[in-house]
C-alpha cells in the first residue's frame, strides 16, 4: 500500500472521529446534523479515495470511486429530510439560536 492512501485513510478516520465528537457535544439536533453530514461525509469519501488509489482502475477501485458521488447525494438529501422532519415534528431549536425565519412557513 502506498503512502498517499495511508495518509488519506488516517485523515478520513480523523474526520469521522471529529464528526462523532460533534454529535455528542453540540446542543440540538440541527447543529448535530451539521457535524454528522459534513465531517462524516468527507471522512468516508477520503477513505474511499484511498481505496481507489490503492487498487487503481480495477473492479474494486472504480466501485469505490462511484460510491463517492452516491454518498454525497445520499447524505445531503438525508440531512435535508431529517432536519425538515424534525422541524415539522416540533423539535425546539437551542437557546443560543439568534434567528428563525422558517417559523412563518410552518404555521
Amino acid at each position: 500500500m502506498n503512502n498517499i492512501s495511508v495518509i488519506l485513510i488516517i485523515v478520513g478516520i480523523a474526520f469521522d472521529l471529529f464528526g462523532c465528537i460533534g454529535l455528542l457535544r453540540l446542543p440540538d439536533l440541527y447543529n448535530r446534523l451539521q457535524s454528522a453530514t459534513k465531517c462524516v461525509t468527507l471522512g468516508t469519501c477520503s477513505i474511499l479515495l484511498a481505496l481507489f488509489l490503492h487498487y487503481g482502475f480495477t473492479s474494486v477501485g472504480v466501485k469505490a470511486l462511484i460510491a463517492i458521488p452516491l454518498l454525497f447525494f445520499a447524505s445531503t438529501v438525508g440531512a435535508h429530510i431529517l432536519i425538515r422532519g424534525a422541524y415539522k415534528y416540533g423539535l425546539k431549536l437551542t437557546d443560543k439560536t439568534v434567528v428563525d425565519e422558517y417559523k412563518e412557513v410552518d404555521q
Binding site: F15, F18, G19, I21, G22, R25, L26, P27, D28, Y30, N31, Q34, S35, K38, C39, L93, T94, K96, T97, V98, V99, D100, E101, Y102
Partner: peptide, 17 residues
C-alpha cells in the same frame, strides 16, 4: 466544523435564514 466541534468554548450562533 471540526474547529467548532473541538474548540472548548464552542463558538456557535445557530439560526435559520
Amino acid at each position: 466544523v471540526a474547529y467548532r466541534v473541538l474548540s472548548p468554548k464552542m463558538p456557535i450562533k445557530p439560526g435559520i435564514v
